[in-house]
Amino acid sequence: KKIKIKIKVYNPETKEVLELEIEVSEEEAEELAKKLAEELEKKGYKIEEVEI
């Protein structure tokens, strides 16, 4: 079964909002969402919402 992940991120420095969407297997979904959120935060983005 495929799971659709939508991530909306906001960069306070540039006032930019990015929306990302990807489909992955159920097993990958939670781990991938967690890794993406961590990487984006390292780059200065503030995570507003992660929906699985």
Results as ranks from 00 to 15, higher is better:
Ile52Lys: 01
Ile5Trp: 01
Val50Tyr: 04
Lys35Gln: 07
Lys15Val: 03
Lys6Arg: 14
Lys15Asp: 11
Glu51Ser: 13
Glu16Gln: 12
Lys34Ile: 12
Pro12Glu: 11
Glu41Gly: 11
Lys4Ile: 10
Glu39Ala: 06
Lys8Ala: 03
Ile22Tyr: 11
Ile5Glu: 00
Lys46Phe: 12
Glu26Asn: 07
Leu20Cys: 09
Lys6Ala: 04
Lys1Met: 05
Glu51Lys: 12
Leu18Ala: 05
Lys8Ile: 08
Val9Ala: 13
Gly44Ala: 00
Ala37Lys: 13
Leu20Phe: 15
Ile5Asn: 00
Glu51Thr: 15
Ile47Gly: 00
Glu49Thr: 15
Lys15Phe: 13
Glu30His: 15
Leu20Pro: 01
Leu18Glu: 03
Lys46Val: 15
Lys15Tyr: 08
Thr14Lys: 04
Tyr45Met: 15
Leu36His: 02
Glu21Phe: 12
Glu13Ile: 13
Asn11Ala: 09
Ile5Met: 03
Lys4Arg: 09
Glu21Trp: 13
Pro12Ser: 05
Lys42Trp: 02
Ile5Cys: 02
Lys1Thr: 07
Glu48Cys: 15
Val24Gly: 06
Ala37Glu: 04
Tyr45Asn: 15
Tyr10Trp: 08
Ile22Met: 12
Glu19Thr: 15
Glu30Trp: 14
Lys6Met: 05
Glu28His: 15
Glu41Phe: 04
Glu31Ser: 08
Ile3Phe: 15
Lys1Arg: 14
Glu31Met: 06
Ile3Leu: 11
Lys6Leu: 05
Leu18Asp: 02
Leu18Cys: 12
Tyr10Leu: 12
Lys34Met: 09
Glu16Phe: 13
Pro12Gln: 04
Glu48Asp: 03
Ala29Phe: 03
Lys35Gly: 06
Glu48Val: 12
Glu23Ile: 07
Glu13Cys: 04
Lys15Gly: 14
Ile3Met: 14
Tyr45Leu: 14
Ala29His: 03
Lys35Thr: 08
Glu27Thr: 13
Lys15Cys: 10
Lys42Asn: 05
Ala29Met: 03
Lys43Asn: 04
Glu23Ala: 09
Ala33Asp: 01
Asn11Pro: 05
Glu26Lys: 05
Glu21Thr: 10
Ile47Ala: 00
Ile3Asp: 03
Lys42Pro: 00
Lys4Tyr: 12
Ile47His: 00
Glu16Ala: 08
Glu49Leu: 13
Glu28Ala: 08
Ala37Arg: 10
Thr14Val: 06
Tyr45Asp: 13
Ile5Val: 04
Lys42Leu: 06
Ile22Asn: 07
Lys1Pro: 11
Ile7Asp: 00
Glu28Leu: 10
Glu39Pro: 00
Glu41Arg: 13
Ala37His: 03
Ile22Thr: 06
Lys35Leu: 10
Glu19His: 13
Glu48Lys: 05
Lys34Tyr: 06
Glu49Asp: 05
Ala33Lys: 03
Leu20Trp: 06
Glu38Thr: 07
Lys43Glu: 09
Lys6His: 11
Leu32Asn: 03
Ser25Glu: 12
Leu40Gln: 00
Lys43Arg: 08
Ile7Met: 06
Ile22Lys: 05
Ile52Thr: 02
Lys42Ser: 05
Glu26Ser: 11
Glu27Gly: 15
Thr14Ala: 04
Lys34Gln: 08
Glu21Leu: 15
Ala37Gln: 12
Ile5Pro: 00
Ser25Ala: 15
Glu38Asp: 09
Tyr10Lys: 06
Glu30Arg: 08
Glu28Val: 09
Lys1Leu: 09
Ile7Trp: 03
Glu21Met: 12
Ala29Val: 11
Glu49Pro: 00
Lys2Glu: 10
Val17Asp: 05
Glu51Ala: 09
Lys34Leu: 06
Glu48Gly: 03
Lys35Arg: 08
Glu51Gln: 11
Gly44Trp: 01
Glu23Ser: 13
Glu13Gly: 05
Val9Phe: 15
Lys46Ile: 15
Leu18Val: 03
Leu36Gln: 01
Leu32Pro: 01
Thr14Tyr: 08
Lys43Met: 14
Lys42Cys: 09
Glu49Trp: 12
Leu36Asn: 00
Lys46Tyr: 12
Glu26Asp: 06
Glu39Gly: 03
Glu27Phe: 14
Lys35Pro: 00
Ser25Lys: 08
Val24Met: 02
Lys1Cys: 11
Lys15Gln: 04
Ile7Arg: 00
Pro12Asp: 05
Ala33Phe: 09
Thr14Asn: 12
Lys46Ala: 09
Glu13Phe: 14
Glu26Val: 05
Tyr10Cys: 06
Glu38Lys: 07
Ala33Ile: 14
Val24Pro: 02
Lys4Gln: 07
Leu32Cys: 13
Leu40Cys: 03
Val50Phe: 05
Glu39His: 05
Lys43Leu: 09
Ala29Arg: 03
Glu51His: 08
Ile5Leu: 09
Leu20Asp: 01
Lys4Ala: 04
Ile47Trp: 01
Glu26Arg: 06
Lys15Leu: 06
Lys15Trp: 07
Lys34Pro: 03
Ile47Glu: 03
Val17His: 15
Ile47Met: 01
Ile5Thr: 00
Glu38Pro: 00
Asn11His: 12
Glu30Ala: 10
Leu36Pro: 00
Glu19Gln: 11
Lys35Tyr: 05
Ser25Leu: 15
Glu19Cys: 11
Lys46Pro: 12
Ile22Ser: 08
Lys42Gly: 04
Leu40Ile: 02
Glu51Tyr: 14
Leu36Tyr: 07
Lys34His: 07
Ile3Arg: 14
Leu36Cys: 03
Leu20Thr: 02
Lys43Trp: 04
Val50Lys: 01
Glu13Lys: 11
Gly44Pro: 00
Ile22Leu: 13
Ala37Asn: 02
Ile7Gln: 00
Lys15Ile: 11
Lys46Met: 11
Ile7His: 00
Lys2Arg: 10
Asn11Met: 05
Ile3Lys: 15
Tyr45Pro: 09
Glu28Gln: 12
Val24Cys: 13
Glu38Val: 09
Ile3Pro: 03
Ile47Arg: 00
Glu41Val: 08
Val24Ser: 09
Lys43Thr: 02
Thr14Asp: 07
Ile52Gly: 01
Ala33Gly: 05
Ile5Lys: 01
Lys1Gln: 04
Leu40Arg: 00
Lys2Gln: 11
Val50Ile: 09
Leu20Tyr: 14
Ala33Gln: 03
Glu16Val: 11
Lys34Glu: 04
Glu31Arg: 08
Glu30Ser: 10
Gly44Phe: 01
Lys42Asp: 04
Glu19Val: 14
Asn11Leu: 04
Tyr45His: 13
Glu21His: 12
Lys43Asp: 11
Ile47Leu: 02
Glu48Trp: 10
Glu19Pro: 03
Glu38Phe: 07
Lys8Asp: 01
Leu40Lys: 00
Thr14Glu: 03
Glu38Ser: 07
Glu51Cys: 14
Tyr10Met: 11
Tyr10Ser: 13
Gly44His: 01
Leu40His: 01
Glu28Gly: 15
Asn11Cys: 12
Ile7Ala: 03
Glu19Ser: 12
Leu32Phe: 08
Ala33Met: 14
Pro12Thr: 08
Ala33Ser: 05
Leu32His: 04
Ala29Asn: 01
Ser25Asn: 14
Leu18Ser: 03
Ala29Ser: 09
Ile3His: 09
Gly44Gln: 01
Glu19Tyr: 15
Leu18Trp: 08
Glu16Cys: 14
Lys43Val: 03
Glu28Ile: 14
Asn11Gln: 09
Val9His: 04
Glu39Phe: 10
Pro12Lys: 06
Lys43Tyr: 14
Glu13Trp: 09
Leu36Ile: 08
Ala37Tyr: 08
Ser25Cys: 10
Glu39Cys: 10
Glu51Met: 15
Lys4Asp: 03
Leu20Lys: 02
Ile52Val: 06
Tyr45Gln: 08
Leu18Ile: 11
Lys8Phe: 02
Gly44Asp: 01
Gly44Arg: 01
Leu18Asn: 04
Glu27Tyr: 11
Val50Glu: 01
